[in-house]
């Protein structure tokens, strides 16, 4: 080591002593919470798809709490988890049911997010709760979408109302709700075609469906669930905004959480729109729908991460 380097190293030690909180001065383990520490934390946060804004916010929060302390990364992450648990916490009511008559659940989302599979899972869940279900196959656009839902209906033993390809989805929704009313079904789940939130006409179509069934049963649909692909990144925020504006979303279903994706984008969505996650999809069978649990989710966001 050269002379100057030695001086530098010496000074570094001094400065780290000066920067260290007195509580941690004699700790032999852990690391000083400095810029490098915080940058690493930020990288860990961003990798969950939580986004730059929420990531920076949490980074600053940790900085304010721990700056100058010597801690383990796990301690910082525990604080982050605690914060997220509080942020994402919600009463564990799954579905807001109608006080009387059928409960109408409308399911919306972008193409390929997992709407149809999620509907099958929801139908299965209602069935196991002893409720009768009718499905409305409102995706009259995509090739064979109706068949896909019909196959599920057969497998699950629930009734389904379908329309011709290209038919007005609002008319299918209307008939499905009528069927639920006349046959005294407990739950009516309406499928809709996948659409991007930027397609104005298609978003208007959602508004129309919403309006039409609102006239059939007052205060319906009781739930409008936005199905979000867990692999989706920051565009999820735009999806939440667009679908909430058009269809008054009441909650999220976070699908495909069984992969390596973390689905962290629900954090900024919760911050910005107060839209709770109601269910998570964790597999391809009808049983693979689980009630969202903020504690478990927050823990899972950061597991397998090398700290």
């Amino acid at each position: 080591m050269g002379f100057f380097n030695r001086i530098k190293a010496g000074l570094k030690k001094t400065s780290s002593v000066l920067n260290t909180d007195i509580r941690d001065l004699f700790k032999t383990e852990g690391r000083l919470v400095d810029d490098q520490f915080l940058d690493e934390l930020f990288a860990t946060l961003v990798k969950t798809d939580i986004g730059g804004k929420a990531g920076t916010e949490i980074r600053d929060r940790i900085q304010n709490t721990f700056r100058g302390r010597v801690i383990h990364m796990t301690e910082a992450l525990d604080a982050v988890k605690q914060h997220l648990k509080e942020l994402l916490a919600q009463p564990e009511e799954s579905i807001r049911y109608a006080t009387s008559g059928p409960t109408v659940v409308m399911v919306v989302g972008v193409n390929g997010s997992g709407k149809t599979t999620s509907i099958a899972k929801l139908a299965h869940m209602f069935r196991t709760q002893g409720k009768s279900v009718v499905l409305g196959a409102g995706d009259t656009f995509r090739a064979a979408a109706v068949q896909q839902l019909t196959i599920w209906a057969e497998r699950l033993g629930v009734e389904i109302v379908t329309g011709e390809p290209g038919a007005d989805p609002a008319s299918v929704a209307h008939r499905a709700v009528s069927t639920a009313l006349s046959e005294g079904k407990d739950v009516c789940i309406l499928d809709t075609a996948g659409r991007l939130q930027t397609q104005v006409n298609l978003m208007k179509e959602l508004e129309k469906i919403h309006r039409v069934i609102g006239k059939q049963i007052e205060s319906s649909p009781h739930e409008v669930l936005l199905v979000l692909d867990a692999t989706a990144g920051q565009n999820g925020i735009s999806q939440a905004r667009g679908f909430s504006e058009a269809a008054n979303c009441t909650g999220l279903v976070l699908a495909k959480l069984d992969g390596t994706a973390k689905g962290g984008v629900v954090v900024p969505i919760r911050q910005e729109f107060d839209l709770p996650v109601k269910f998570i999809g964790v597999g391809e069978t009808p049983e693979d729908l689980v009630l969202f649990n903020a504690d478990e989710f927050s823990e899972a966001l950061f597991d397998e991460q090398t700290v």
Binding site: T48, V110, T231, A232, N235, G236, Q239, G259, A261
Partner: peptide
């Protein structure tokens, strides 16, 4: 690949 994919794109 879905154009809306997030950080997980590298893994898949």
């Amino acid at each position: 690949t879905d154009g809306m994919t997030g950080q997980d794109a590298v893994n898949s």
